[in-house]
């Protein structure tokens, strides 16, 4: 526990230094105190075992997809807005579902997989993930301009 607390303190103090951009003594003291508060908070959260992160490297093989999709999807969403404003054609998004294997609710790998799928699915502007329904084994998403296949809704293909 003290080793993890120290690691958190060092990381947070480094972040403070990077953002504060000065080594004046009062600033350093404030940064050290703020980093200590953050490190203790992180340790308290960690001790509750609410979140456990385990990543398989193979999950990241399509990590480029959400990043590449940002550019065309931003254009698509902004064009939809212009269509509504200029041509008076109202835009209305839709909810869609894609099959998703949820895994164990409290399993570290499955929790991480679901979190990654939600983050990657919500990265590009046209789509965001509302949640993974464990009972129906589906992932619920919302799209402003409905379209695309399952890989557009789950770009890392984790389901």
């Amino acid at each position: 526990m003290p080793a993890r607390l120290c690691a958190w303190w060092i990381a947070l103090a480094a972040l403070w230094l990077a953002l504060d951009d000065t080594v004046a003594f009062p600033e350093l003291m404030t940064g050290a105190a703020a980093a200590l508060i953050g490190a203790v908070a992180a340790e308290v959260v960690h001790s509750q075992h609410l979140v456990r992160v385990r990543v398989k490297p193979s999950w990241l093989r399509y990590a480029w997809r959400p990043v590449v999709r940002v550019f065309p999807e931003t254009a698509r969403v902004l064009l939809a807005l212009l269509r509504q404003l200029v041509l008076r054609r109202p835009v209305s998004g839709e909810f869609r579902m894609v099959p998703f294997r949820p895994g164990r609710p409290d399993g570290a790998y499955d929790m991480t997989r679901r979190a990654l799928a939600k983050t990657a699915g919500s990265f590009a502007p046209n789509t965001y993930v509302v949640g993974v329904d464990e009972e129906r084994e589906v992932m619920l998403v919302h799209q402003l301009e409905p379209g695309g296949d399952a890989s557009d809704l789950d770009p890392l293909e984790l389901g």
């Binding site: 839709e94 909810f95 869609r96 579902m97 894609v98 099959p99 509302v130 949640g131 329904d133 009972e135 129906r136 589906v138 619920l140 409905p146 296949d149 399952a150 809704l153 389901g159």
Partner: peptide, 14 residues
């Protein structure tokens, strides 16, 4: 937040 019975939502296939 989950889809209720009767709510029309398109389901895609993998």
């Amino acid at each position: 937040w989950k889809v209720r019975e009767g709510e029309r939502v398109e389901t895609l296939q993998r």
